[in-house]
Amino acid sequence: MSMVHIGMMQSSSKKVITKEEWEKKLSEVKIRKEDMNRLVMNFLVTEGYVEAAEKFQHESGTQPDIDLGTITDRMAVRKAVQCGQVEDAIEKVNDLNPEILDTNPQLFFHLQQQRLIELIRAGKVEEALEFAQEELAPRGEENHAFLEELERTVALLAFDDASTCPVKEVKELLDNAQRQKTASELNAAILTSQSHEKDPKLPSLLKMLIWAQNQLDEKASYPRINDLVNATLEEPVT
């Protein structure tokens, strides 16, 4: 009974921590420079900034957690998809590691779908139809979800100029965003095959910061970080 009472008392009058106290506490927390550098390197490597990673390695002496050569390969694959050269991308991935597309039917389907989209974009109608029939239809038979996506893609052929297609979900397939989506899916699969996490660590750290601040908001008033880009400490609300 008394416990509940105290709890209610506390929630009604939140503890206030001033900026000075907060900064003093913050300065007491020691974070190793090497750890910070590794976080940065992890970001550069995962996102594929190979030149920046090389420079950063040179300047800070931080070892990348992956062979930088593999980043170049990965980026070449990604770029090929972004430029619409899907077949080229597929061959490159298969040289990198044949397991990736062999064990990932969904990704393989999306790449084939992208290939079909590129054929349609280039106006190669006959080739597109043949490709859809030869390569994509059997995948559609294996998996119902693929069939629906295939039907949506083939719908592009119904319009002389697909960009005038009235159905939003169909027209979207021709957007650059579709290429980006396929490219990121492929990028993530390559990273996973290299025993590397597919997302950099920094964004999840930021998410944890936001979560922790939200938790703390219920108990105390403190110098919050609202501007994540500059990480400025706000004055506590009293």
Binding site: I90, E91, N94, P98, L101, D102, N104, F108, E135, P138
Partner: peptide, 12 residues
Amino acid sequence: RDVKNQIIGNKT
């Protein structure tokens, strides 16, 4: 190489 690229991901 061609055979390999054709069969990867493609059961048929």
